[in-house]
């Protein structure tokens, strides 16, 4: 069915994501950069929906665009870094040359990889009425131990963040 519409929107969201990412890297103000990154995350979640990962797309919007970027913006505002005070924080010539070299190297790798032929799709996940079950069933059976370890990682991260960000007794 609407293959042309699908392809058009796929390219549209992909190109918007890349353009927003470029804008994000080049903005001086941290707030503007964070908002461009939120735009990138939204476009990526649209791509996720098109790739039959509706649940992950919803989690992407909730966790990345919602929670993580709000934490970033909160820290930017807490530290009062909203306006770009310096002239620019882009590195000098050496850093730019290194970045350009790495970028060229990885683009060359990309083009050599793009010659690969992908096998045909092995059956689509066509059950659009039930999008959570295919994700949650392996999560709670096959990957139960990694799932539990992940919760320990979150606990350690929360404790570590509190310990690191707390003022020491001397600094009061």
């Amino acid at each position: 069915m609407n293959t042309l519409v699908y392809t058009f929107h796929f390219y549209l969201f992909g190109l918007i994501a890349i353009a927003s990412a470029l804008a994000f890297v080049t903005r001086k103000s941290a707030v503007a950069a964070a908002l461009w990154l939120v735009n990138t995350m939204f476009c990526l979640s649209a791509l996720f929906v098109m790739l039959d990962a509706q649940f992950v797309a919803a989690v992407q919007v909730l966790v990345y665009a919602g929670a993580i970027m709000v934490v970033f913006l909160f820290v930017v505002m807490l530290l009062n870094l909203g306006e770009a005070s310096e002239v620019t924080d882009i590195r000098s010539l050496g850093g730019k040359l290194t970045a350009g070299f790495v970028g060229l190297l990885m683009l060359a790798e990309l083009f050599s990889l793009s010659r690969l032929k992908f096998p045909r799709l092995m059956g689509a996940m066509t059950d659009h009425a039930n999008v959570v079950n295919p994700v949650s069933a392996p999560l709670f059976h096959e990957f139960l131990l990694p799932f539990e370890v992940t919760s320990v990682v979150l606990l350690v991260a929360v404790i570590g963040a509190v310990v690191l960000a707390k003022r020491g007794p001397k600094a009061q």
Partner: peptide, 27 residues
């Protein structure tokens, strides 16, 4: 669509790497 998705993924990753290399703001 898989090849295009991998292409977008690689380009976004490269933009991230270049951003780490050229910016000085830790956030």
């Amino acid at each position: 669509m898989i090849a295009e998705a991998l292409f977008f993924s690689a380009v976004l990753f490269i933009i991230g790497v270049v951003g780490v290399l050229i910016r000085r703001n830790a956030i």
